[in-house]
Computed example of a mutant assay.
Amino acid sequence: MQITVFTPTYNRGYIIENLYKSLQKQTFRDFEWLVIDDGSIDNTEELFKEWKNEKNFFKIRYYKVENGGKHRAINKAIDLANGDVFFIVDSDDYLIPTALEKVASWFRTIENQVGFCGVSGNRGRTEIDVIGTTFKGDYIDATSLERNQFHITGDKAEVFYTHVLKKYKFPEYEGERFISEATVWEKMAYEGYKIRWFNETIYICNYLEDGLTQNMIQTFAKSPRGTALYMKQQIKFHNCGLKGKMAYYNLYYSFVKSQLNLKEAAAHMETSLFTMIASVILAETKKRLTGWRFYAN
């Protein structure tokens, strides 16, 4: 089995060396490092010119493209990947030395089994400080939509079969540079694909101030069509009733109101203007009543 370690990067020349050094320490050696530079204007390109000339046991494949967002970089990388499996490792993070060895080992446990799209370990701030929550035991088989019921919360280190990802490309909307990765991971889950979640931390994660996680509200707002798709999928995949739908309509508008008016937001969410207005009014009313009860008590 060959692994493609894929890294999308943008102006991370000041920190990406941590990931590079962690790849040099991997105990598993049959992998490539595929990097899509999303239009960096720092020293990233110079670093990779230098590193490609160093004597590494793994191949470095570096491509620089016009800035288009992480989801476009993933789509391009899926087409370019030589690996049987595809592991997205962000440029501000790094792997423990046995990470790829553990990934390969867990893939062997699902070899020839039907219905799996990949495996996943934990992310952590350290090897013992897990991001989110995890379960008791060695592993659990579940779809991404079943995570909460098994206490699998927070960002995890998913690794997918490349041939499966080729069937699930990210939608690309002109002028928008973001769409949640959950849009694709949960679509695979909705269509029946399971992941073998193993209870080991393999990925060390840093949430930097210039990262997507720390700027999520602004990021959602600037990509209203991609955000609408994600919200509509949440309604469909979780079989929301009227109350749940209204909550998502209001949540959507709270994200995009700096970019869209209520009529435009309703159109993106494929609902009526009346319903969108009602969802906002209901949310405001609930907020006021909650505040009044708190004050009254």
Results as ranks from 00 to 15, higher is better:
Val256Arg: 00
Tyr230His: 03
Met216Pro: 04
Trp106Phe: 14
Ile202Gln: 00
Lys52Cys: 07
Met188Glu: 13
Glu146Thr: 08
Asn18Gln: 12
Lys194Cys: 11
Ile179Met: 12
Asn75Ile: 10
Gly68Ile: 06
Arg225Ile: 04
Thr109Pro: 01
Ser144Ala: 14
Ile96Ser: 11
Thr285Ile: 15
Gly121Phe: 01
Asn199Gly: 07
Tyr295His: 11
Tyr203Gln: 00
Lys59Ile: 03
Ala142Phe: 05
Gly132Thr: 09
Ser272Asn: 11
Ile277Leu: 12
Leu80Arg: 08
Phe160Pro: 06
Ile3Tyr: 00
Arg147Gln: 12
Arg125Met: 09
Ser105Gln: 15
Gly291Arg: 15
Ser258Gln: 12
Cys240Ala: 14
Arg196Val: 07
Thr201Tyr: 10
Leu229Lys: 00
Ile152Lys: 09
Ala99Val: 04
Thr98Trp: 11
Glu46Asn: 02
Lys64Thr: 08
His71Glu: 14
Thr44Met: 02
Ala221Asn: 09
Leu208Met: 02
Thr183Asp: 03
Ile131Tyr: 09
Phe28Ala: 12
Ile41Val: 10
Leu165Ile: 08
Asn148Pro: 05
Ile74Trp: 13
Asp37Arg: 00
Phe178Leu: 05
Tyr139Ile: 07
Gln214Trp: 05
Leu19Tyr: 07
Leu145Ala: 06
Lys286Ala: 11
Arg12Tyr: 10
Ile131Asp: 09
Leu208Gly: 08
Met269Ile: 09
Arg225Asn: 12
Ile202Ala: 03
Leu95Ile: 06
Glu181Thr: 03
Leu47Lys: 07
Ala278Leu: 15
Trp292Leu: 14
Trp292Met: 14
Phe150Asp: 03
Val65Ile: 09
Glu111Arg: 03
Ile281Met: 15
Ile41Gly: 01
Tyr161Thr: 05
Thr183Trp: 05
Ala228Arg: 00
Asp84Trp: 02
Thr7Tyr: 15
Ile88Ala: 15
Ile88His: 15
Leu251Ser: 08
Gly244Cys: 08
Met246His: 06
Phe57Ser: 11
Phe57Gln: 09
Ser272Gln: 10
Thr285Tyr: 13
Leu273Met: 05
Phe220His: 13
Ala182Lys: 09
Tyr63Cys: 03
Arg108Ala: 15
Phe178Pro: 03
Ser22Ile: 06
Glu172Arg: 11
Glu32Lys: 01
Thr183Lys: 01
Lys21Arg: 09
Gln24Ala: 09
Asn75Trp: 08
Thr213Asp: 05
Gln26Pro: 12
Thr271Lys: 07
His71Met: 15
Tyr20Thr: 03
Thr98His: 14
Gly291Glu: 13
Ile281Phe: 13
Asn297Tyr: 14
Lys167Pro: 06
